[in-house]
């Protein structure tokens, strides 16, 4: 299904937020219970596509995220399926306690789709680069946390979120990212995907780092290192089966995410394996610091969020196995 090899890989670049805008507008035509809220960023989050098509079901709440979250909870309480969007830093950050109290605690059917996650926000700088949203959303009971790898997976994730009854946090990015999955890829909440098979180590990755891991695995192959790439689209609930299998079969794990290594995917995998099967591990991500201004590709390099870092970590961890 979602699994593919290098030869099949296409080089289409699409921003996950663009895929979201398209998917949401499409879903809006299928389900009239879907309503959309934004906080003055509908052009950037791409909810504007839905707004144009279904103006009556779109609510611009102005620059007031806390109220937006509560309003969405109220809409859900009368049977609507609200999607709310703004940048990750404002959705998860400003809206955290509202999400906790008004959405997750009552298990309200609210979908929080946060765009501009991570450092690829770029020039706007550290104030706007959310490096902790996955961690703080993951800590909330009842919350499902999804970080798609590409446009195709985003479309599936949005569809799955709409079909699921309960709170969902989906983290998307600003920039165009390479495709990992083929058209029509079926997304299932809580299921990881082995994108590249391998036996010496496993890259457990999420978001745009999955494409980087595929590149790293290809290069490592030439060195005789067989790297598996396990994409985790749903950080919570974690696909424990595939993570445990990776630990058992490859004995070394390198996690990678465009997020702090504290509490995100790396944290989730470490917590799980520490209690079930302690395994050699490295966490690639942002090491407990804030972002900074720069071009997004410069920042990915600056923070070591690329195939080169993954290759170095893979070599190192494989050498430690021996």
């Amino acid at each position: 299904m979602g699994r593919r090899t290098h030869t099949e890989r296409d080089l289409t670049m699409i921003a996950t937020r663009d895929a979201y805008g398209e998917a949401l507008a499409e879903l809006g035509g299928e389900n009239d219970k879907i309503v959309v809220l934004d906080a003055d960023l509908s052009g950037s989050t791409k909810t504007g596509v839905f707004a144009k098509k279904f103006p009556n079901r779109f609510f611009n709440m102005g620059i007031a995220e806390a109220n937006m979250v509560g309003t969405a909870a109220g809409l859900a309480a009368v049977g609507k399926v609200p999607f709310l969007s703004t940048f990750a830093i404002f959705a998860a950050g400003r809206g955290w306690e509202q999400i906790r109290q008004s959405v997750a605690y009552p298990k309200a059917n609210v979908k929080i789709v946060a765009t501009h996650g991570g450092v690829t926000v770029g020039e706007d700088g550290g104030s706007h680069q959310s490096v902790e949203d996955v961690a703080i959303m993951r800590a909330i009971p009842n919350m499902t946390v999804i970080v798609p790898a590409d446009g195709e997976e985003t479309k599936g994730a949005i569809r799955a979120a709409a079909a699921y009854k309960g709170p969902v946090y989906v983290r998307l990015g600003r920039n165009k990212v390479p495709s990992v999955f083929p058209a029509g890829h079926q997304f299932e909440i809580g299921k990881g995907v082995v994108v590249v098979p391998g036996t010496d180590l496993t890259f457990i990755t999420t978001g745009l780092m999955t494409a980087a891991a595929v590149t790293a695995a290809e290069k490592l192959k030439a060195e005789g290192i067989s790297a598996r790439v396990l994409h985790i689209g749903t950080i919570k609930p974690l696909d424990k089966e595939l993570v445990l299998q990776a630990a058992e079969e490859t004995g070394a794990i390198v996690t990678a995410e465009e997020h702090s290594v504290v509490g995100g995917l790396g944290g989730a995998v470490a917590e799980f394996l520490a209690e079930t099967r302690p395994t050699l591990m490295k966490r690639v991500g942002i090491h407990d610091r804030f972002g900074t201004s720069g071009k997004s590709d410069e920042l990915l390099k600056y923070f070591g969020l690329n195939a080169e870092t993954l290759i170095e970590e893979a070599r190192e961890i494989v050498s430690r196995k021996k």
Binding site: V35, F59, N67, T71, A73, G74, L75, A77, K80
Partner: peptide, 10 residues
Amino acid sequence: LSMANGMALG
């Protein structure tokens, strides 16, 4: 009040 207004809108 936010939730109440959300209900009212819905």
